[in-house]
């Protein structure tokens, strides 16, 4: 990290003025070209590219602040989304309970199913699913219990209930919607993801941080409400694999400093263990829990990075 800082300071001290002139020159030229040739959308892309050039000239502190702010925003958004979801769920449950009390009569449908379906409709999800933890859990258990079900099979109402209460784990990949899987990305998705990757790569080199700390908050702010968290985490792992490969190749090729064998051995063995346990945990964690964990972690990381930025720069 300090090697990169040294290089950065050295580069800035020697060529800051030349680089600024160069950037201004390129800026003027390209903006004239953009005005003449391209439409509005390309101009915005150009603005991003200009920003990338200027990033080099910006102090590391600015980037650190940016990472901290984006992480904090993503964490706050996550927690707010979760709060709204739970509040809606409670409201629907209360409304259903009130309906029952005022003489709704009959065999009420599963409250949580209704809540989940309502919430999923909100998120453009089509499938109707049932979740285990319900107030009418006794109904489910009755239907799961074979003896009682056999008795009630004669009853048509119970048959209908049984059809409705087929528990589906909506966090399994097979039960995710196309939107949640992100299996059919559009061209604009590819373009935006590529630009995000480029930004992550640049920030990683300039600040010495890993990829996901920059990438995940950005992608959560963009697609957090549509795409499933497990998919976003898997996406960040592919990105960090590519970034890590690039880092190894460039660092070893430059020959700045060789890694320590013993340290690598300890890190690899314990990290491998941690990753295996982490991935198995991820397999069983529900979407809401994952969102809560990610929100809290992003807030913590954002706070930590902002604290570092405030104390250092």
């Amino acid at each position: 990290m300090s090697g990169a800082r040294f290089m950065f300071a050295f580069a800035l001290s020697r060529a800051r003025s030349r680089f600024v002139l160069c950037v201004v020159h390129v800026h003027v030229r390209v903006s004239v070209l953009a005005r003449v040739c391209f439409d509005k959308s390309f101009s915005s892309l150009y603005s991003i590219m200009s920003g990338l050039f200027l990033l080099e000239n910006a102090p590391r502190g600015v980037l650190t602040y940016l990472i901290g702010v984006i992480s904090t925003l993503a964490g706050l958004r996550d927690l707010k989304g979760l709060y709204v979801l739970r509040r809606n769920k409670k409201r629907i449950l209360r409304a259903n309970a009130l309906e029952d009390a005022t003489g709704g009569g009959g065999f009420d449908t599963d409250n949580t199913t209704t809540a989940v379906v309502d919430m999923e409709k909100k998120n453009n999800v089509v499938t109707a699913t049932a979740v285990g933890e319900t107030e009418t859990g006794a109904v489910k258990e009755d239907c799961k219990d074979e003896e009682k079900c056999d008795k009630e099979k004669e009853n048509k109402e119970c048959k209908g209930e049984e059809e409705e209460i087929i528990a589906v784990d909506k966090d399994q990949f097979e039960n995710m919607t196309v939107l949640e899987r992100w299996s059919e990305p559009t061209k604009s998705d590819f373009a935006i993801v590529f630009v995000m990757g480029v930004l992550t790569g640049i920030t990683s080199v300039l600040t010495g941080t890993g990829g996901p700390i920059t990438f995940l908050p950005m992608v959560i702010l963009w697609k957090g409400h549509e795409v499933h968290r497990k998919v976003l985490i898997a996406l960040s792992s592919v990105m960090s694999a590519c970034l890590g490969t690039g880092a190894i190749i460039s660092t070893l090729a430059a020959g700045i400093e060789a890694p320590d064998g013993g340290l690598c051995l300890i890190i690899t063995s314990f990290a491998m263990l941690g990753v295996v346990v982490g991935v198995r945990l991820l397999e069983y964690v529900r979407k809401e829990t994952l969102q809560l964990l990610m929100g809290l972690l992003l807030l913590a990381v954002g706070g930590f990075v902002l604290h570092q930025a405030v104390t250092k720069y």
Binding site: R181, F190, G197, V238, C242, L243
Partner: peptide
Amino acid sequence: YTKCVPWMVGACCGAGAMFGRF
């Protein structure tokens, strides 16, 4: 275990990250 890896988007993002790093 999760089968959640979006390979196409991941490849695009990874290519972008390597390009950005370069």
